[in-house]
Amino acid sequence: MNDIKDRNVRSRISSFFTYLVMIFFTVMALYPLFWLVISSFKTTTEFQMNKLGFPRRWVTVNYKDAWVRGKFPMLIVNSFFYTGITTIAILVFSFMAGFGFAKIRHKATPILYGSFVIGILLTLQSIMVPLFLIVNWVGLYNTRLGVLIPYIGIGMPMGVYLGTEYIRSIPDALVESARIDGASYGRIFWAIVIPMAVPVAVTVAILTVTGTWNEFMLINILTSNDGLKSLPVGVQKFAGALSTDYGKQFAALTIGLIPMLLFYLVFRKEITKGVAAGAVKG
């Protein structure tokens, strides 16, 4: 009897410590973000005297200033534009290629598909300088197209890989019977393949949206016109220039934080699934 009681006490203690550890890591993860958000409601003068506590007076003037002076409405529209077009284009082009690779026999497939798979391993840094030079030569420097084409191309390998592997699992018989009924490949793609590939399309879309929205290096070197920049670049420029006006800097960072935070809270199940799928393959 005593033994069981003893074990109960022990397991309670260990459970208590497990909770303690988990809560510690959660607090560690959240505290800096929390600190950022409460600091953004302080005036710079207050922040200098009160760096850790809650604001004595919550002010929103930082947000008003940052919103207007940082041109955030325009940056957010730009970010939606780049992310939206890139995501749709990657989905369409990579699933088209995936359909071709998976369902039409062709002797070029091993080479073409293989080259995409190698592409998953290539990194942004290794193409940054050549891309910059090429975009300049073809006259796409400082244009939206000059940002979109690289974004789309960079996302292709992962999209083609995940798309092809998934479309392979669609039964051949479905495609063949549609062919016998006289459907064209284009029609089969839109009416059969796309609807059936929705789960993997969600994964590819999630990976693309998070990657494109947060990207700031490439767009920084491919454009110099402020009107073409995206939200992360704007945040960096605005917050960097105001390194002593802490209140506005924190407000700008909070504005930069919110879109991805919302996206994550809404799609967290899909995001974690997509990351697990994308990462292990990489």
């Binding site: 039409i104 995409f116 592409g119 960079i154």
Partner: peptide, 24 residues
């Protein structure tokens, strides 16, 4: 149909990733 499906994506990939890597 095969080439119509595969080529757009492949060309994008070559232009943006494969060629710049070799070029680098």
């Amino acid at each position: 149909a095969y080439w119509a499906l595969v080529l757009p994506g492949f060309l994008l990939y070559i232009a943006v990733m494969a060629f710049p890597t070799i070029f680098s």
